[in-house]
Design a protein around this nucleic acid. Sequence first.
DNA 1: AATTCGGGGCC
DNA 2: GGCCCAGAATT
Length: 380
Amino acid sequence: MRGDSRPVQCCVARMTKYNASIQSTLRQNLLDWFDSHQREMPWRSEKSLYRVWVSEIMLQQTQVVTVIPYFERFLERFPDVESLAEADEATVLTFWEGLGYYRRARLLHQAAKTIVSDFGGQFPKSFDAVLGLPGIGRYTAGAILSIADNQPLPILEGNTIRVHARLAGVTGDVQKSGTQKSLWSLATSVVDPERPGDLNQALMELGSEVCTPKKPQCGSCPVHGVCNAFQTKRQLELPYSSKKIRLTPINESVILIQRRGKFLLRQCLDGERWAGLWDFPRFQTDEDGLHSDLEAMVHASTGLSVEIRDTGWSTRHGVTRFKIHLRCWVAEKVQGRLRKTQENIQWVDRHKFEDFPMSVTGRKVATELDSLITSQALFP
DNA sequence: AATTCGGGGCC
DNA sequence: GGCCCAGAATT
């Protein structure tokens, strides 16, 4: 197929499966490499469907080094499906705090309940049943069953998209469905019949440790001999994506409202950012972090009448896709009483903040509260 | 097919 | 400051 006089790009762009020879080389070399180079991970040393499931959910859009401490704590508190299913959602969220994409935790919790009610507490082994669980898509179902039950199923995610695009010279826009189809086809053709889980992990491990986005270590790559991108020196051009990440600037303020030593927290509603987590009342402000009628905003959101006392402290926190300009105001005097509202709001002693799963910015404010409220800037 | 959802690692 | 990360659900 390759090696004739036609441009390489033309031929390989249409190659959507590895031929038998390349399949064999990929499997052999990658499994050998994986046996000697794989990193230690807590879900590898002790393997079960439950542990691999939890790890795969945590690993969605999240790097291994970030996940490991969360995984350890989570498994200590929720060692099996039953303990997870029985827990309150708020408790589950507490152990997810700081990891991001909190819907993952809520769906994980829902799925645990489903497994108890519909599968007798045993994580299912049928691909369709697993795919039907909330929070589990094509990648995660294949990953769990191949890794924890050695089922010959393909996977495709960030790392392996890059690996396959380079190995096979896939030049199409990776966002396009046609390109995705080609990549899934490549992934399917390389599935190892003997050790599918190890080969899948080897592909991902290669993508994160060797076949990296910026500085791929092709010299130490076990499969550079069959890599189209390496042969044509296009490692840095593949995979191609036309999509550019854009940031949306956000200016928001949180307001510290205290009464009798307690502070007002509200639980973020479904549909808004940090759904289910707790936060200080938060409002949109202008570019300078100011709002023309902050007291009215507080009243509108919480049903409380407040008197804004000072505006002495500010900090910034950058979040991917958002930039939050965070300012805090302290309202010392609250005239109104707590009213019944749609919002789930609560007066919380500052020493009890740790009992609430919080947004990262909310946690930051909570952690620095002591220095904030004793600051001379706030109480001149 | 495009958006949304977080936070951190890494250059 | 930008890009990327063991993606899924929603619109």
